[in-house]
Design a binder for these strands. Structure first.
Lengths: 229, 229
DNA sequence: TGAGCATCGATTGTATACGATTTTTGGGTG
DNA sequence: CACCCAAAAATCGTATACAATCGATGCTCA
């Protein structure tokens, strides 16, 4: 993490957004230390604001704060990983159903551009960015369902899913996603709620099936990782 | 709120617990201002710690923070109120099912004492405390289901339900609850997951039906409220 | 040589000080 | 008498300073 030192003394919320994006795009990996002074210098703010941001992210499950030791990007255990996807399985199919009922042409168009951006990112070999957009697709569906409370939950679960994927993903190809999202898009376009619910359920099962939830990956300490590489 | 000034310089987490409990028991009502200096003096800590606690509660939806204006106990809108119970309807029946499958004799005993405490509180005319225990009953079920992630969501939803009830409850009698909880207890005792799921679903419908989600109540300013009383 | 321990450095936890913004109050005017 | 504007008080936002804690390095001793 080098000093980008943006001139704007960003607010706490900005820092949350930028750090969260970095985690979602796997530019910051699970277990990485988030030093308060360092982050503060990068964004040009004092530690007070950084601490607010880190605690906010801790509430979302994205970082874990250990007393007197600092903040680290969270490393979900296997159990947590399962739980995240069980929760998603509980919330998202129903949400997709509701969204399919309410989806307007505008909503569908928005989802479409989302998928296009995802493709573009993949084509540009920006896997992290594609993954982030892929997650936002799910959040967008929650937004369409017009259930702000559930949307917040799903947003958090998608967020944590990024960590799970960073730790437990098996293959490097992320192509599989687009097919499922395309199918969902068509279900929304035709307001087929039954189909949307079913597709979402299957999609989540697919996602879990591509995880290796047996062994915990080695703690990729930045130094060792750098030396081996 | 008078200065109880506990000697122990409580940590942020303690303050969250105590404030949260007070809200759950309706000792602090929606809309009430939570002054940082005041809270700090009450608990014997500086504003830094208080701010941490308030922001933590804000993340849980229990207080809303308005920039340069301070923290207030949240006043869920009618839409939010509906959303909270829709989310509960989505999460809790399945959770009750899972809990019924896993419930041990020990778990059932714990739930039983919970109900007893609730009764005792009602007998002692402590409606707020009874309500709090009633909410914890639901959280306890989530704990039994051994899904920490979903438990956290349910905990938050139950919390916000306290606010909804404070604002939109119609009757003053809370007796109805105990019947439903008793029935659930028996379902857990016999590990009848189908029944548990069905009972929970019905219980939540009952709860919503006792709310008046048509008109927003007048903003009960603390002073005016005190003078009228 | 390896384990145990003390001291040092680095990092976080908390309080406090100062500037910014909002709210209130008081007086003046139509 | 109501309304509106200005000055003052209260309150929040952020940075900084100091205290507390943890981890590491290097030393001692068996």
């Amino acid at each position: 993490m080098k000093a980008l030192a943006s001139k704007t003394p960003s607010s706490s919320e900005d820092i949350v957004v930028r750090l969260t994006d970095a985690v979602h795009e796997h530019r910051i990996l699970p277990g990485m230390k988030l030093n308060e002074d360092e982050v503060g210098e990068i964004f040009g703010v004092g530690r007070t604001v950084v601490r607010q941001a880190l605690r906010a992210m801790a509430h979302g499950g994205l970082v874990s704060i250990e007393r007197n030791r600092g903040a680290f990007v969270a490393r979900p255990s296997i159990k947590e990983a399962r739980e995240v996807f069980e929760a998603r399985a509980l919330l998202e199919p129903q949400t997709a159903r509701a969204a399919a009922e309410r989806a307007s042409a505008q909503d569908v168009a928005l989802l479409e551009t989302h998928i296009e951006k995802e493709h573009a990112a993949l084509a540009a070999d920006e896997a992290g960015r594609a993954l982030n957009l892929s997650g936002l697709f799910h959040v967008e569906i929650a937004r369409i369902s017009d259930q702000a409370t559930i949307e917040a939950f799903i947003r958090q679960l998608v967020s944590r899913s990024s960590l799970v994927i960073a730790l437990y993903w098996q293959r490097r190809t992320a192509l599989c996603e687009s097919q499922a999202h395309h199918a969902l898009l068509e279900a929304f376009r035709s307001n087929d709620s039954d189909l949307a619910e079913e597709l979402m359920k299957g999609h989540l099962v697919d996602l879990v099936s591509q995880l290796n939830l047996r062994e915990v990956p080695a703690a990729t300490q930045s130094l060792r990782d750098a030396l081996i590489r």
